[in-house]
Nucleic acid binder design. Structure first.
Length: 352
DNA sequence: GGGACATGAAGAA
DNA sequence: TCTTCCTGTCCCG
């Protein structure tokens, strides 16, 4: 259940694990029979755009004799999809980013090969849609919303549906401006706009809730009511949050001073696992968020009970006091709002 | 063993 | 706005 930061980590992992290598491809489940067309081709690299992953395969000398065509495997993990990696010890080390565990979906975890490096003999689970195997390891894909082969035009069609991705380089600020302008043109609520991948690509339900909290912004305020200054700062905040997520594999939005040890007791049983939960050096999940999945618990800042409601087919979480329309109106409509996060500018650098 | 639920999105109505 | 699809986990009886 990844948001965009996980997909960017995945792309980096594929690049390191298989980039430039001839690979074997198969569909143990049988529902991606086109995998056979790619078997034995060279995997050229990996590309992440929003929550979409593209794996380009080199033309095949046999099949593409007339016109060489790069085939892009387009993968979207949706709500349930995940990748599981297994391989030689060196393979695992090579693409571990801040954590040695490698399941890249809801959790990162290695397939158990009994520690004998006999990963080639691991029988895929019956639900594995796509297996990619290289010289040093393999990756198994289960439960994706999309797993298909596209040509260059097909890939472009997917990209054309997407707004700017905060994790793509944006040196001239074009991505940020596209985001700001799209929001300001719309009467739709900011909480719904943030989930629309045409407005901004890569945000999911956690980043939505947490970004709105950090901006002290009511999820139900129409986009057109927001100032350019506020939206510029929200974009910058998103870049910082997602960059941290891509680096560590974890979403952490709370400032250190806002985390409470006693919250562990309350939330220990509430689910929402993240990569690295078992690592004592990272921020535990029950201290990672301000509002996500904290409905009925006291707001970390003001103690008011966090609320939840449906908003664009997903549950949104917010503090009705810190994010109250009435109390914040003055600051969002000003061109230079007193941005709350300016006081506590970024998540700290633990778990690098 | 059943049901609820989950970091998602497309297509029908 | 609704239904559907994809899988795994946890809680309950």
């Amino acid at each position: 259940m990844p948001e965009g930061h996980t997909v960017h980590r995945l792309a980096a992992a594929f690049e390191r694990a298989f980039g430039g290598q001839q690979v074997r491809t198969s569909s143990p489940q049988g529902r991606f029979s086109e995998a056979a067309q790619l078997d034995g081709r060279v995997l050229l690299g990996a590309e992440a755009v929003g929550k979409h992953l593209f794996l380009p395969f080199a033309p095949s000398a046999d099949v593409d004799r007339e016109a060489p065509v790069v085939r892009h495997v387009h993968i979207h993990l949706g709500l349930y999809g995940s990748w599981t990696f297994a391989g030689d010890p060196g393979f695992a080390d090579a693409h571990a980013i801040g954590a040695p565990r490698l399941r890249m979906g809801e959790q990162e975890e290695e397939l158990d090969d009994g520690g004998t490096a006999e990963w080639r003999r691991i029988v895929p689970r019956p639900t594995v849609r796509l297996r990619i195997a290289g010289a040093c390891g393999l990756a198994d894909l289960t439960g994706p919303t999309a797993c298909e082969i596209l040509d260059a035009d097909g890939r472009q069609t997917v990209l054309d549906r997407l707004g700017p991705d905060p994790l793509r380089p944006d040196p001239d600020g074009r991505g940020r401006r596209r985001f700001v302008e799209a929001v300001r043109r719309s009467r739709t609520s900011i909480g719904a706009l943030l989930m629309n991948q045409k407005i901004v690509a890569g945000i999911g339900n956690i980043y939505r809730a947490e970004l709105l909290f950090r901006a002290r912004l009511d999820p139900f305020v129409p986009g057109r009511d927001l100032s350019t200054g506020l939206l510029d700062q929200m974009w910058e905040d998103l870049v910082a949050l997602m960059t941290y997520g891509a680096r560590t594999g974890r979403i952490v939005t709370t400032q250190p001073g806002h985390r409470e040890i006693e919250a562990r007791i309350i939330e220990r049983s509430r689910g929402t696992r993240q990569n690295g939960d078992e690592d004592p050096d990272v921020v535990p999940r029950e201290e990672s968020f301000y509002v996500y999945h904290r409905q009925t618990l006291p707001c970390r800042l003001c103690g008011t009970a966090v609320r939840s409601a449906d908003l664009s087919a997903r549950t949104v979480f917010w503090c009705p006091r810190c994010q109250s329309a009435r109390s914040r109106r003055a600051s969002w409509t000003r061109e230079h709002p007193a941005a709350p996060w300016a006081l506590v500018p970024d998540v700290d650098g633990e778990a690098a």
